[in-house]
Simulated scan of single mutants.
Amino acid sequence: MTQHTRPADPTTPDSFITPVDRVFVRTHFGKHPELEASAWSLTIEGLVDRPLELDLPTLLALPQTHLTAVHECLGNPLHPDVPTRAVANLDWTGVPLSTVLDLAGPRPEARHVWLEGADTGNFADEHDISYLKDLPLEQARAEVLLAHRMNGEPLLPQHGFPVRAVAPRMFTTNSVKWLTRIVLAAERPDHLFTTRLYTRTHPGETEPRPAREIDVNSKLLTPRHVPAGTTELAGRTWSYTDVTTVDVAIDDGPWQRATLEPRGTHPTWQRFALTHHLTPGPHRIRSRATDSAGRVQPPAGARNEVHEIEITAS
């Protein structure tokens, strides 16, 4: 199963930008690689006219951009339907992947971009494998950032130093850390982390798809102990597209429409809140989001099921 570099995830704070020390950490092989900036390089190869090898100063000299985006872990790839809600909202600085691809010159037959990290090891009974993901070329060209800073600071080793991919609006399995190799190819790679794990069969379908676009989801962030009386019940919600409504239910009461902040121009999460009078004692709080594509958080049994917490008012 997926291994962590620390025993538990930090609690998600109710702030627009998640502090770096509150961001969840995931690795597949038990530890992250220790890379030296002076020795790092990124190769771009495969179906390109001009294969490249870029060192860090060369990459940093290219035009830079900023992106603020929600960042969600799919969870254990062996159990992809188990809810985790490991999520953060982060500001990234880096070079658009399209800039590097233009320097390399993709050939007309290139259809897919393979992203490979420096981390290697054993996972799910396979040995000495690297971490590899792939995306359709046009999607990768339009969206992926080669990031070297998180929240204005250089990436920490556990978050992908010195450079990682950031694939906004996608599960973070697609945002390859410790990026060292990009391959343009006509076909998808047959690999543990591309075609055998991190796939999902959607309701009404028979063929699995790669786990890419994030689901509509929400997470209540109200403290477990609150004052009795008029209280704000708040949280964060996110989706591949913008969330249009969030409903909150208290105990066995009806769903009530929460106030929802707009998403804006970047693919970020959105804050929702409902003010409600709570009597002293325990309460069950639930949240349910709907996005502009008409997707609604499902009931129990799905990885993005309606979120539920228990709080006590006193």
Rank of each mutant, 00 (worst) to 15 (best):
Leu145Phe: 09
Ile44Leu: 10
Asp81His: 15
Leu103Thr: 10
His225Asn: 12
Val296Thr: 15
Val20Ser: 15
Pro80Met: 01
Ala249Leu: 01
Arg257Asn: 08
His148Leu: 00
Gly160Gln: 03
Thr265Phe: 06
Thr194Arg: 11
Leu62Gly: 08
Ala185Gln: 14
Ser130Gln: 10
Leu220Asn: 08
Ala86Thr: 11
Arg22Phe: 02
Gly46Cys: 06
Thr2Ile: 12
Thr290His: 06
Arg303Met: 03
Thr312Ile: 03
Leu60Ser: 04
Gly253Asp: 07
Pro189Asp: 01
Thr241Ile: 05
Glu143Tyr: 11
Gly294Tyr: 07
Val216Ile: 03
Arg50Glu: 05
Ala39Asn: 14
Arg271Lys: 15
Pro210Ile: 01
Thr244Asp: 08
Asn217Asp: 13
Thr244His: 06
Arg288Asp: 01
Gln158Val: 04
Ala234Gly: 07
Pro80Phe: 05
Ala258His: 11
Glu126Ser: 10
Glu308Asp: 04
Thr231Cys: 09
Pro106Trp: 09
Gly94Leu: 01
Gly94Trp: 02
Pro254Ala: 15
Pro7Phe: 05
Ala88Lys: 14
His191Ile: 00
Leu74Ala: 14
Thr206His: 12
Ser314Gly: 08
Met150Thr: 13
Leu179Pro: 00
Gln3His: 15
Ala167His: 12
Asp91Gly: 06
Ala300Gln: 14
Gln256Lys: 13
Val248Phe: 00
Phe171Val: 02
Phe193Ile: 00
Tyr131Trp: 10
Ala61Arg: 15
Leu78Gly: 15
Glu45Gly: 09
His276Phe: 05
Asp55Ile: 03
Phe193Cys: 05
Thr43Gln: 09
Glu143Ala: 12
Gln3Leu: 09
Val306Ile: 15
Val246Lys: 09
Ala124Val: 11
Val95Trp: 05
Tyr240His: 15
Thr206Asn: 11
Arg111Glu: 08
Ser292Gly: 04
Thr290Lys: 14
Pro208Phe: 06
Arg196Cys: 06
Thr99Glu: 08
Val144His: 10
Asn304Lys: 13
Glu261Met: 06
Asp102Phe: 00
Pro106Tyr: 07
Ala104Ser: 02
Gly160Thr: 04
Val296Lys: 13
Thr265Glu: 12
Thr312Cys: 04
Thr18Phe: 09
Leu78Trp: 08
Arg164Leu: 01
Arg26Trp: 07
Asp134Gly: 00
Glu205Met: 01
Glu72Lys: 14
Asp91Trp: 05
Glu126Ala: 09
Ser98Tyr: 08
Leu155Thr: 13
Asn217Gly: 12
Trp255Gln: 03
Leu60Val: 00
Val166Glu: 03
Ser175Phe: 03
Thr275Tyr: 04
Val20Asp: 14
Phe123Gln: 04
Gly75Ser: 03
Ser130Asn: 12
Asp215Gln: 07
Ile182His: 13
Asn76Cys: 08
Phe16Pro: 02
His202Asp: 11
Arg212Asp: 11
Arg200Asn: 10
Met170Thr: 11
Ala167Arg: 05
Val248Asn: 05
Thr245Glu: 09
Leu260Asn: 09
Arg85Leu: 03
